[in-house]
Design a protein around this nucleic acid. Structure first.
Lengths: 242, 242
DNA sequence: CGTGATTTGTACGTATGTATC
DNA sequence: CGATACATACGTACAAATCAC
């Protein structure tokens, strides 16, 4: 592991264990460099990570203030929603595969991404059940060029783990859109709600490190159970608003 | 302006103007350093900004690939929703101030933040109207210790501009939560919907650079008009999921 | 298939600027 | 005003991934 990652983990642990208390300052970069016997740049990389993960707030001329990580531990930046919260808290969610078939690229995808409409995609529909209640229906479209097939047992756990550990895919970034939609017959039945009731739909396009598009997902969430958390920093130069 | 910011703006412009085409590579860091007559570290800072803003994708050993900025220009990371989209697109949204009063800290706030329940807050309720339709009701609680008052004309435009330019406040970060809620009488009336209809509620806590809490906002959005965009990168070391 | 050239990533050191206290 | 702390900038060296030959 790289030095700045080790230092990041060490300081993270000290914050979580209360060795560094919230609302106090970290030692200065100079002191930390001394302490870990590394250069100041290496410390700064570790601190940047800590800032990205909402553990500290840096302030020029002053120091690095330790934040209340408990307050922001759920809303880690850019995360999704109920399903990931369950995962994080290790609440067991039962997954059932409803559909696992090969289809031609649906038109709406061919329109928005650089794929031809006769390319093949894996079409996957799964329900996520917590304590006997179906909360989420996940619908995936996966490029078969990249993912030849999804073994049934992997689909029931985490396809991401399968992609990264078995297929060695490097997932780089995703764009996401959240909106309310009326449930069609299939979705309403799967979620156990009335047809035309509103659900929250989270649409994602996911890309690999070489920028190739490889997955489109639509997550349908029961309205009352849907939560989305976010932690955002005001960006350095620009007009980014909250 | 700092060197790396200037370089960032220059390259951003070249991407937007098509001088650098999507799916091609940027010149190498070494070449850029030569070209701008700066060190490689300075170039790397500029490129990091470009990556943060979804203009490029860096890949070790290979280079910096230019992304299709049009595809991600709306979903700039961590942004909010319909209201900000309107702002960005310069669609005129009429703002009406319904409430602008001084109140004691509401209990729910005293519970979650480090404020005493007899501290005073400005309570602001405003509607956002686009093309004759009220789409959003914004409810704000602002610490009076920090913001003495909100002039009516500023409330009707942008209170953030007022905070930053007039009061010189440095806004640092915010945590945000999105969920569906049933509208109470007041909200439903303001939005022109039925009582108990669902709306999207975006709750934010906003903090200054010295980590003091200063604002709580609840934005109530009409369900059908609500959109939230996000662009997320898979984080370096860890278990962050999309 | 390897080997060398290229490209980005990490790490260290130094100097100077700027904000805070 | 001086001391401290973070920010920027430059330069060097080497590691690791990628790519072309």
């Amino acid at each position: 592991m790289k030095k700045f990652e080790k230092i990041y983990l060490d300081i993270e642990q000290k914050i979580q264990q209360g060795q560094y208390q919230k609302d106090t300052y970290l030692p200065s970069e100079h002191q930390l460099a001394e302490q870990y016997q590394v250069s100041r740049e290496t410390i700064r990389k570790a601190l940047r990570l800590l800032e990205d993960h909402a553990y500290i707030q840096k302030k020029q001329g002053s120091g690095s203030i330790i934040l209340d990580y408990r307050r922001f531990s759920l809303p880690i930046s850019g995360l999704t929603s109920y399903k990931e919260l369950q995962d994080q808290q290790n609440i067991s969610a039962k997954t059932t595969v409803l559909v696992n078939e090969l289809v031609l690229c649906p038109q709406f995808l061919a329109d928005q991404e650089d794929v031809s409409d006769h390319e093949k995609f894996i079409h996957l529909i799964r329900t996520r059940e917590v304590q006997g209640e179906v909360l989420i229906v996940d619908e995936d479209y996966l490029r078969q060029q990249i993912i030849p097939e999804i073994p049934k047992d992997r689909a029931e756990i985490s396809i991401y783990q399968y992609f990264e550990e078995d297929l060695n895919l490097e997932i780089a970034y995703a764009s996401k859109e959240i909106m309310a939609k009326r449930a069609d017959e299939f979705i309403s039945q799967a979620l156990g709600i009335q047809e035309n009731d509103y659900v929250m739909a989270v649409r994602s396009n996911v890309y690999l490190e070489d920028t190739t598009f490889f997955q489109h997902t639509i997550s349908y969430h029961k309205l009352e159970k849907f939560r989305f958390y976010d932690f955002a920093r005001r960006k350095q130069i620009f007009n980014d608003k909250f």
